[in-house]
């Protein structure tokens, strides 16, 4: 097994609002190893983006605050670092690619100026060397005629190209970890596929670990080693990608999988898309038990009263963890028998 790179322990984040504190992240723990690609799935408000932004000091504080936990990156607790030291990690050892490439690039700065910044800050390159490196990076993310495009502004690039520029910035200092937050969500499906392919290719070349945050299970299946399903600021299930898709143990994961369109069975195999009934809980008053219980047809009384711990799923592949009081495969078998 490779060395652990990022060790998140019991991370909790809250946002103070007029209506009381919103508990966005409630005790998230996981380990990411060097070179591993972790796909984090969940709907809006599941805490998937917030917990990552919070551990690098990127949520606005106030109203946001970290209410507990530890985040060890290469053995150092990010939450205990001073802003000044955290800044040395952001953009250096940890690179970011954000969701909307239209709004995530500064409209008033040339692409070169934006790529050069981390190179000068973290690698201490002089202006000329940084510019040469910026051109190489644009080549790396397959932007044609890179040299001529350095001095153009973001609005002169297409959406897909802008996301490539974002990736160039994220990878500029050869990070050990690349965090892609909904990196393909704002793009056309064909462009999405190109970007995913590009990231996979770059990963083979550069060998960094990736946290790929998305609500798109299709993208996760294509890119991840490990999948982690989040809901209401908690991890409900986590494990090797194939195992999660073939043998889901949490009802929420199952709901997500069932809501994927299935085109494999031809006309006969087509069915109405499954929809998970209800809405996520109000995180100002999170339910005492399993947060998904109110929407879960399989929920037991214990689910509503007590939060299940995240433990190895019995009979599943090693490392396949689930938080559920019920035994999903058994319930499904019973359902099929009826």
């Amino acid at each position: 097994m490779k060395k652990p790179l990022l060790d998140v322990r019991d991370l909790a984040v809250a946002f103070d609002t007029d209506g009381g504190a919103v508990h966005a992240v409630n005790g998230v723990s996981y380990t990411l190893h060097e070179g591993e690609t972790l796909g984090i799935v969940g709907e809006s408000g599941s805490g998937k983006s917030v917990h990552v932004l919070a551990m690098l000091g990127l949520i606005p504080r106030p109203p946001g605050r970290i209410t507990g936990g530890q985040v060890l990156f290469e053995g150092r607790d990010l939450l205990a670092l001073k802003e000044r030291d955290l800044r040395k990690i952001r953009g250096g050892a940890i690179g970011f690619v954000f969701q909307d490439p239209m709004s995530s690039l500064n409209p008033g700065m040339t692409v070169a100026a934006q790529i050069v910044e981390p190179l000068r800050i973290h690698l201490g390159l002089d202006a000329r060397a940084a510019r040469a490196r910026a051109k190489d990076l644009l080549d790396l993310v397959r932007i044609p005629n890179a040299g001529a495009r350095l001095d153009q502004y973001p609005h002169e690039f297409s959406g897909g190209q802008r996301q490539r520029v974002m990736i160039a910035i994220g990878l500029s200092c050869r990070p050990k970890l690349l965090i892609a937050d909904e990196a393909t969500t704002a793009l056309d499906v064909t462009v999405q596929a190109e970007i995913v392919a590009l990231v996979q290719e770059l990963k083979r070349e550069l060998g960094m670990a990736i946290i790929w945050i998305t609500h798109d299970l299709g993208v996760v299946a294509g890119i991840s080693d490990t999948v982690q399903v989040m809901y209401a600021g908690r991890i409900l299930e986590r494990g090797p990608v194939d195992d999660i898709f073939s043998d889901p143990r949490n009802a929420y994961t199952l709901g997500l999988l069932r809501s994927l369109p299935d085109l494999s069975g031809g006309r006969a195999g087509r069915r109405r898309l499954h929809q998970i009934e209800g809405a996520p809980p109000d995180m100002r008053h999170p339910p005492p038990g399993d947060p998904f219980a109110p929407r879960n047809a399989f929920a037991t009384p214990r689910c509503r009263a007590e939060m299940p711990p995240l433990v190895q799923a019995p009979g599943a592949a090693p490392g396949h963890l689930v938080a559920a009081w019920y035994d999903l495969p058994k319930l499904l078998a019973a359902e099929a028998a009826r």
């Binding site: 690098l56 952001r90 954000f98 995530s104 910044e117 910035i169």
Partner: peptide, 13 residues
């Protein structure tokens, strides 16, 4: 509050 300011901060600026 814009995304590109967050990007700048994420770069370590």
């Amino acid at each position: 509050g814009s995304d590109y300011v967050r990007t700048a901060r994420a770069k370590g600026v």
